[in-house]
Design a protein around this nucleic acid. Structure first.
Lengths: 346, 346
DNA sequence: TTGTAAGCGTTATCAT
DNA sequence: ATGATAACGCTTACAA
């Protein structure tokens, strides 16, 4: 015989069993107010015996607030987001909050639907990593007027009314470029991406590095592809290598593009880093390339942690100040794809 | 002046505004029962005007069930799980279910905590991809006795009381091995992993391929590492290459191990596939290796879809039959790391 | 076709 | 220190 645990054991049942009132049981369960040790023991015993566990739904209804927060991403498959998600989940969970993870995809309808669902489920707050779209505008407006706090974690930077935490794309690219400049390179190419805010900021950082060191910038070495794909990296690199004066170093705006670049470079029978130094961004698959790729690591974990801390402070009313903007440092991880200029036959 | 949307507009408010009863409003909101067109319009108008949206918490309390399901994984960072998660989320969302994603990690405490939280929040059902542990036993027991359906999506296979959907590891390895046999290879090495059910099953498939084709199996070419890491793949491959009779083809039990193997092979100045053919598993980063890796793709999307379908059928009582066990096919994706035996100098 | 009223399982206020 | 009771916002017989 299997022990059947009735799923609707209520406080009332416990009260009956323990021979006390529901409010006394409530005090024991919620651990507040005055309860004598003796009574507490009786209640605890009754709870065990009939297998009581609290009903969070009823509690939420009564308290008029949930312990649920949501994290919205374009795609959880992207390791960038899943790492942020992990750190959010971690802290949320240790503060007794549940995390609803929402894949908003790219369709406006989906995000609208999610917005409604979150509203109806009375989430206590949301964190998102979404790009700026009409549907996001709608979301922000709706949640703001419902007084539900929002934090952008490496999402759209455009809403000055919401708390934002993001990586310092300018600094990351500046550091990477500077590192190459210090290795003696000056013909440093940039594999950039059209219509990307991130790409624009990184390009800015690249330029700053040249300015700060007083070295000459070669504008023609900044090339733009349509997206952050491997093909994009491959094609751009091919173009650069076909020129009369190819670069001696390359910064690709993510690791996947860098993989494309590696393929192009090897096809031309050149070696990394002897002929060409290469740096990627994101530090995701960088350990696995051949040679292991130097890459600018983004502080995903930190982004998530800061975002959730801000959110919890907002939810619990500990922070009622102006919207924050937190910018976190990126960090170059040096591996084997970068070397001093002129060690090869280039 | 910002329009302030009061967050606690209730059915009662709408009823008052529209001059009807709460139950009439309820009928309009829930879209059931008889409501005259005229009344419906009045109610709809009132809803718009005062910005009403339903309270899912109250509804859940009343109906004694939620529209929430949970998906538990060891780590959402693993692309294997995040892809399953995506397909689950997709179908769940289109059936008006919310998905709570839980990172159970590896500590028993965390899973116990999640178990309780899920129970208290009255989730309608759960899907998991967790390995067999005491904490999972506890989870299964607790949910079973609360009559909350569970589906294992490529998780522990040990519970015959729960629905299980998984990939056919035996068939995947068999197909991969067979493919290599047909290319003329017979000295086919296996980079396996100790204490892994999956590894055991794949090894079985490997052996079946030899049996079915009547070719001679070289037991000594089956080597085991401690885990599925790149280092593991590298070290095992080094060992194999150091032998007097090295293999002409290799099956690595995931892509990351295959990357390690590639490194080892290149270090010995051998080429892929001319000297050695290589096949990975998972088809995650396989496109990005040099050369692009042939790899056995697991049906992650399909696993998620089947799992959520089964779960929804259970939740909605459409399926009250015996626990199901669904096994889905793996599929070899051929790229450039595999070739006919003897095209190189080996 | 519409309205009344009794819960769902908690929490919180007020007595006792 | 404990108990009675009224909400929380919705659904749903049942009555009208």
């Amino acid at each position: 015989m299997r022990k059947e645990r009735k799923s609707n054991v209520t406080i009332k049942d416990v009260a009956l069993r323990a021979g006390v009132s529901t409010s006394t049981v409530g005090r024991v369960v919620g651990n507040y107010g005055y309860v004598s040790d003796e009574t507490r023991k009786k209640v605890l015993k009754a709870m065990k015996e009939i297998g009581y566990y609290p009903n969070a739904i009823a509690r939420s209804l009564k308290r008029r607030r949930t312990q649920t927060i949501a994290y919205l991403v374009p795609s959880i498959t992207n390791p960038f987001f899943s790492q942020i998600a992990t750190s959010i989940e971690d802290l949320a969970s240790s503060h007794e909050y549940n995390l609803i993870l929402c894949n908003a995809g790219t369709k406006a309808d989906k995000l609208r639907k999610i917005t409604n669902m979150l509203l109806e489920n009375r989430v206590a707050g949301i964190i998102h990593s979404l790009p700026c779209t009409d549907a996001l505008y709608n979301l922000v407006e709706v949640f703001q007027s419902a007084h539900i706090p929002i934090v952008s974690a490496s999402g759209s930077r455009r809403f000055s009314e919401v708390d934002r935490v993001m990586a310092d794309d300018i600094q990351g690219a500046r550091d990477a470029t500077r590192f190459l400049l210090e290795l003696g390179h000056s013909r440093i190419a940039l594999l950039a991406v059209k219509n990307s805010t991130t790409s624009k900021l990184r390009t800015k950082g690249y330029k700053e590095a040249f300015q700060q060191t007083g070295r000459k910038l070669h504008e023609e070495l900044i090339v733009e592809g349509p997206d952050f794909s491997e093909d994009s990296g491959y094609t751009l690199m091919k173009v650069l290598l076909g020129r009369s004066k190819p670069p001696t170093a390359v910064v690709a705006f993510n690791d996947v593009m860098a993989v494309g670049a590696i393929r192009a470079i090897k096809e031309e029978e050149l070696s990394i880093p002897e002929d060409i130094s290469l740096i990627g961004f994101d530090d995701t698959i960088a350990r696995l390339t051949q040679p292991p790729l130097s890459s600018v690591a983004l502080p995903m974990g930190e982004i998530g942690r800061v975002a959730i801390r801000i959110l919890l402070d907002r939810i619990e009313g500990k922070d009622t100040g102006e919207p924050k903007k937190v910018v976190l440092k990126e960090k170059l991880v040096v591996r084997d794809s970068t070397g001093q200029l002129g060690t090869g036959h280039g």
